[in-house]
Design a protein around this nucleic acid. Structure first.
Length: 620
RNA sequence: GCCUCGGUAGCUCAGCUGGUUAGAGCGUCGCCUUGGUAAGGCGAAGGUCGCGGGUUCAAAUCCCGCCCGAGGCUCCA
């Protein structure tokens, strides 16, 4: 919204003609005259809402305090903006703004909306006499957890509830026993403790040549080096196999959406400020997976036999976060989500999918994303807590973990409840990764329906939304922070073996051993592993040092001895204490079976850079 | 978006109370070294000191604006 505030000695206007059918009441040709009035010319713009009316009221009050008390005349003036709201919406907000000023005790009148009017004005000549104010749609009113949520408790793995308040955190037993959970609860209820260093993953993402900032793009858009891309692709391979085994179809929807489509503007809700708009078009970049998924499924002919209907998508999302919020891989403006939806025909189906996804994601956190350093939190509308607490307790018994619950008394979003798997970082911060959400609204809102046993068309009563790896960016942040945890406890920091951009580095003792090194590398490479050969003219210890500093998990040193015996001197660094990384002489087939046991059933991909270290450029 | 701190070679940083030709380590390139598990030796190249403006005889250094980053705040459907 734009507001041009003019301190007028004299002002008069005359309604000439109605411009729109829904115009305000006014008498054609009847002039109104004012003396000593603050005329507020306002233009309601696209995306405006009542959210900032409080600011408008206080600004006008402040202004009146500065220039002297006056009557205020609200005057609709579309010419202040090139990005106007539709007239219906604008008229509604114009009226609401008038009410807001009236309720604030101001002496205010309004000129009719929707009329062509002539006016005359004589403005005072002081510095404050002419002021232009711009207001942008704020996000949701700021809730602190205390306002949005009114009750907090932990449910332990036995199903017992423990009430938590900001003052009793240290006395709650499950919180005494679980550092990660206590950290999370403190962050939620009291606020994050100050840390002055940058998160470990920012240092690592550059050092390992995975990802970096890209000053040529907008803030929060990252460039990915080959080593980062291979990790991303491997995570996506694995996320896809999880989703397909779960029973989803895989789909792909566009990145750009029309805001004049009702379904899209409904999903945009109050969050216009975080949208990436396309200049001059009624278009936004995709801000979540739903704008693609809901219209997609809405048009699918579904029978009860196909329910629950599950979809999976790698959804690139764009959110224009405040510039000061963007940090490392934790908060970015463009990210790739691994997004699941289950459209359920019955409550029973929804319960089953909620449980299944939650246990699945628990395994993911435990085995890959953040082993030993994660917690589970729930946000619930209270009526749903009463109804589903049995399910929650059973679930916690099953995964053998306590969880932190926050209760609210009204539904602020589309979900009745959701859980979130939060990784805890060594610096004491937490980051949401996986989530499962229970949506009771959108089946009806978006007319997503199936045909039941009786041939009747029914809205999908429950939609389960879920994301396995959250965003790839956050998953990578968590993987790197997991390594930081290991490093902190004196262990070698590494990525999981299957995600290491280079899984094995073959290091010839001297150039004479290069031929043999190549044959070893070939054997491992043909078994599907990512293998590097350090063919550079450097001392052995320097080559070893460099491989270690680049987090290569397995080193195979070969010289004349090994060539003779058909072996390699293997350093398996996984789980080793820093400085004590034992080496073992083994045959190549033994090495292969070691690698196979480390790899497990995880996806394989070839290396995205040359296997010869001498052929690889430094990326910076 | 706000507050604080920062931006100097490809990278990490020193220099910054204005004053010769802007330094170091790493990396790169060349030469020597042909080595047995965390960094062998010598040499060379490499810089619009983030960008723009201002003050001054003189600006990496002081002032203003902007851009980028970090921490904090606000925020995080």
């Amino acid at each position: 919204m734009k507001a041009l505030l003019l301190d007028a000695q004299e002002f008069s206007y005359t309604p000439v003609d109605k411009e729109i059918d829904a115009a305000d009441e006014a008498e054609k040709g009847k002039s109104k005259e004012y003396r000593d009035v603050l005329v507020a010319f306002v233009a309601i713009e696209k995306g405006d809402s009542e959210s900032f009316f409080g600011d408008v009221v206080s600004d006008i009050k402040e202004h009146l305090a500065a220039i002297g008390d006056r009557k205020v005349l609200l005057y609709p003036y579309a010419h202040l903006s090139e990005d106007l709201a539709p007239s219906g919406e604008a008229k509604k907000l114009y009226g609401a703004l008038f009410e807001a000023l009236l309720n604030a005790g101001l002496n205010v009148e309004k000129a009719p909306f929707g009329w062509t009017k002539s006016f005359e004005i004589r403005i005072r000549g002081h510095p404050l006499a002419e002021t232009l104010k711009t207001y942008k749609g704020k996000r949701r009113a700021a809730y602190t957890p205390k306002e949005k949520f009114y009750r907090f408790f932990v449910i332990d793995e036995n199903g017992d509830e423990h009430e938590v308040t900001p003052s009793n955190i240290n006395e709650v037993k499950p919180l005494q026993e679980n550092d990660a959970l206590r950290t999370f609860v403190i962050n939620e209820l009291i606020g994050k403790k100050e840390h002055h260093e940058e998160p470990a993953h920012i240092k690592y993402m550059k050092k390992l040549e995975l990802v970096d900032y890209c000053p040529e793009s907008d803030v929060g858009h990252l460039k990915w080096y080959p080593n980062g891309v291979v990790i991303r692709d491997l995570i996506l391979d694995y996320a896809e196999s999880i989703a397909l085994s779960w029973g989803a179809i895989k789909m792909q929807n566009p990145l750009i959406y029309r805001t004049d489509v009702e379904a899209i503007s409904m999903l945009q809700g109050e969050f216009h400020e975080r949208d990436y708009k396309i200049e001059g078009e009624n278009m936004v970049l995709r801000f979540a997976s739903d704008p693609g998924a809901f219209p997609f499924v809405q048009k699918v002919s579904l029978s009860y036999r196909q329910m629950p209907f599950k979809v999976y998508e790698e959804a690139q999302c764009f959110r224009k976060e405040q510039s000061g919020e963007v940090v490392g891989l934790m908060r970015v403006r463009s990210f790739l989500m691994t997004d699941h939806h289950a459209f359920c025909a019955s409550e029973e189906q929804a319960r089953q999918e909620f449980r299944r996804l939650t246990t699945l994601f628990k395994e993911l956190m435990d085995s890959i994303i953040s082993p030993n350093h994660w917690v589970l939190g729930f946000e619930i509308v209270d009526e749903y807590y009463e109804r589903y607490k049995g399910m929650f307790k059973e679930l916690l018994r099953e995964i053998k973990k306590p969880a932190f619950f926050k209760l609210m008394n009204r539904m602020t979003h589309y979900y009745a409840f959701k859980n979130e798997f939060q990784a805890i970082f060594p610096d004491g911060s937490n980051l949401q990764i996986s989530t499962v959400q229970w949506d009771v609204k959108n089946g009806e809102r978006f007319d997503i329906a199936f045909t039941d046993e009786n041939g009747e068309r029914k809205h999908v009563p429950f939609i389960i939304h879920a994301s396995s790896f959250g965003s790839i960016e956050r998953a990578l942040a968590s993987l790197l922070e997991s390594a930081a945890w290991d490093e902190k406890s004196g262990k070698v920091p590494l990525l999981p073996f299957w995600l290491s951009p280079e899984q094995v580095r073959v290091i010839p003792v001297s150039e004479r051993a290069l031929k043999y090194a190549e044959s070893v590398a070939d054997q491992l490479e043909s078994a599907g592993y990512r293998v590097g050969i350090d063919d550079r003219d450097m001392t052995l210890s320097k080559k070893v040092a460099e491989a270690k500093s680049h987090w290569v998990p397995v080193l195979a040193v070969v010289g004349e001895k090994e060539a003779e015996h058909g072996t390699a001197n293997v350093v398996n660094r996984i789980g080793a204490v820093i400085g004590k990384e034992p080496s073992t002489e083994m045959r190549i087939d033994e090495l292969k079976s070691l690698l196979s046991s480390l790899q497990g059933d995880k996806p394989k991909r070839r290396m995205y850079v040359s296997k010869y270290i001498s052929r690889r450029p430094k990326f910076y």
